[in-house]
Amino acid sequence: MTALLSEPPKVAPATAVPRRPRNKRQLLDWIAVHSVALAMGVIFTVPLVFVFLTSVMSDRQALTSNMWPTEWHFENFALVFEKAPMLTYLGNSLLYSVVATAGMLLSSVPAAYALARFRFRGSNAAFMLLIAAMMLPPQVVAVPLYSMWASAGLTGTLWPLIVPYLLGDAFSIFLLRQFFLTIPEDYLDAARIDGCNEFQILYRVLLPMTRPGIAAASLFTFLYTWNDYFGPLLYVGERQDSWPLSIALASFRGMHRATQWNLTMAATTLVLIPVLVLFLFAQKSFVRGITFTGVKG
């Protein structure tokens, strides 16, 4: 392998974290930008705060429009675990989301690369197929798909939802393809001149350069599968021990005659937490941007 690949030079991301302001104008600028960010952050968080506030209300208060809890019932969170086998659901959700996300990366990255950088007959058709696949409403194709999976004996499990990710997910392929297109062709040419084959270019040059994009695609797939309600309802709706959290969440609404909004929101909070934690971990790949690029100058 060439020196280029064994010792990738460091390159800072295009928009390094801004320094602290030095003069008055910069200070005003700094304050303005940060106040907007703060205001936006707060406004967009308001609905979430109410999800949380509702989750610690008493049964009775949750049905009123008084938004500030008169009593704080933190035991609602424990109650959620008592009312339903949340750990089983959590395990099912993790199975679905983690395997699907990992499978998506393995299957969709090469496909996206082929669509972004190879020219071949039928590439236009493949691209259109991709876009068409994104458009079909899941409700529309549900019945025929169900009968297909039933004949494979996989209904009652989450595998009908996971297997497609192992082969390629239309939206992720499209997204990754577009990320790959943002990298100027010169970088790949330079690697090619250095004797890389296409596979090496993908894994040693393109992937490290589009790491934020990979992180974004993974986050999207994880979130989508984590919140997917319609798919699991169709395939494991009857099999309570295979339920993911999204179904369990909805069942809190229907468990009693009147919806227990406090417990529903407590469960919602519990479902949200793993996603936010995941983001805090994934954040590094966004913030650090590129640490390795293949070429310099």
Partner: peptide, 30 residues
């Protein structure tokens, strides 16, 4: 905006955004 602010402000923005996004549609609408 997120590329122009410091880490704490960016983290706040992203958490708000992801929270909004990760909230199931029914709960969010309610």
């Amino acid at each position: 905006l997120a590329t122009r602010v410091r880490t704490w402000a960016r983290t706040l923005l992203f958490l708000a955004a992801l929270g909004a996004w990760a909230t199931p549609a029914v709960a969010g609408s309610t």
